[in-house]
């Protein structure tokens, strides 16, 4: 499958988010080996230079580690991964609040809806 990309975000960024999502979801686990840049580029139908940039970015974020001659692996630093999960959640909540407030909903209203959801109403 080649992928469909959103219009207003760089392609490399969307691929970074996708891989981070797989890690947070648990479909990629600490210590798992990622496909080679070429393999992943072919699978996603993106330029190998773009994929190279994705891998570089993930490594700079300390999400992955490259072992010489062996490939790229998801970090086994669980603290960093817990942090990634936290950062991602906060980011999503921030953007949710931002969208709601731009329509005039108050945080109080949001909390009430969330609480009633939690009670299964």
């Amino acid at each position: 499958m080649t992928m469909d990309f959103m219009k207003d975000k760089p392609i490399y960024q969307q691929l970074v988010d996708l891989i981070c999502g797989d890690i947070i979801r648990g479909s990629l686990k600490p210590g798992d080996r990622l496909p080679s840049v070429r393999e992943y580029a072919v699978e996603a139908g993106v330029n190998a230079n773009t994929m190279q940039r994705v891998y570089k970015e993930l490594e700079q974020m300390d999400i992955t580690e490259t072992k010489r001659g062996q490939g790229t692996f998801v970090t086994e630093n669980r603290e960093r991964l817990a942090e990634l999960r936290e950062e991602t959640m906060l980011g999503l909540v921030e953007s949710f609040i931002h969208n709601m407030e731009s329509l005039g909903f108050t945080q109080r209203e949001m909390i009430e809806v969330l609480q009633s959801k939690e009670r299964g109403e």
Partner: peptide, 11 residues
């Protein structure tokens, strides 16, 4: 064709 291009050229 796109995949072939990516697979068989060296960036």
């Amino acid at each position: 064709l796109i995949k072939g291009l990516i697979q068989f050229t060296d960036p």
